[in-house]
Design a protein around this nucleic acid. Structure first.
Lengths: 147, 147
DNA sequence: CGGCATCCTAGACGATACTG
DNA sequence: CAGTATCGTCTAGGATGCCG
């Protein structure tokens, strides 16, 4: 009977009749998800499923490694720049700005000379670590076979 | 003391001294992660962290919604094509092929007339649902604030 | 029905140079 | 130190058309 608002259907093993997986994606019936929107949206910008949206952000090239570092302790900009190894200044800035906009990271400026800026996880950012760990554990336990 | 092979540091609240977060990303010390590889890799193709790799795949535009449908029951190709709403044939094929290559979905061909092809989750695919649910629950509980 | 081949565009990303 | 600006590249993804 497909109750509303359930997520990705319970535990993996227990597949009861009513397990809710298709409404899971947005918590909204499939048929309403993208097209049957109440208001036409500015072409190509209509809302995405929040879960996909989250995974898109975490799935870019540098977000996860940056988060994993900030999970240990606060970092200064160039300190991160060195720690991440391979990231460009441009992408580090962008990654941090996005994380900040999403409320996962906060940025504190110290008016020293030369100036210094510190980045740290917000409580929201910390709260993400737990569910993320479950997925990370799965990824490590089930490494992708090549070719 | 940074034991090897630990993932994204335990529970969110408990931040003990030794919580392992920077080696978490690959299970390998940061300094060895990308550059100090034993063998030089064909420029621009060197290995990624398996966790980031997983999130990149799940984070594309159609993988998650496809998975969420297949989590309910097996689907035929055009049945999926209709259910996903907005996906092109090209991207549905690509998405399914990738999921198949990753061992998350299996494809069965029935030599009927006209031919029919059925897609279903593998046990590995099912096993992914559980950790994924945790993250999905977080995403829904913490919707991103706009601007 | 279930694809594959082709062409095209928008955005992710890297490299480099410049600035308060 | 901590960025911004500009440019070029590469790939995800959409549109369309053909095929067994």
């Amino acid at each position: 009977m497909v109750a509303d608002g359930l997520i990705l259907g319970a535990t993996a093993g227990a597949a009861e009749e009513g397990t809710v997986m298709s409404t899971a994606h947005t918590g909204v019936p499939t048929s309403l998800r993208q097209h049957a929107l109440p208001v036409p949206v500015p072409a190509g910008e209509y809302e995405q499923c929040p879960v996909t949206e989250l995974l898109r952000r975490l799935g870019d090239k540098w977000t996860l490694v940056t988060l994993s570092l900030l999970a240990r302790r606060p970092f200064r900009f160039n300190e991160l720049h060195r720690a991440v190894e391979g990231i460009s200044q441009r992408m580090l800035t962008r990654t941090l700005r996005t994380l900040e906009a999403d409320g996962l990271v906060e940025r504190e400026v110290f008016a020293t000379l030369p100036p210094s800026v510190e980045y740290r996880l917000t409580p929201l950012g910390v709260s993400l670590l737990e569910p993320l760990s479950a997925l990370a554990a799965w990824a490590v336990a089930n490494p992708r076979r090549v070719g």
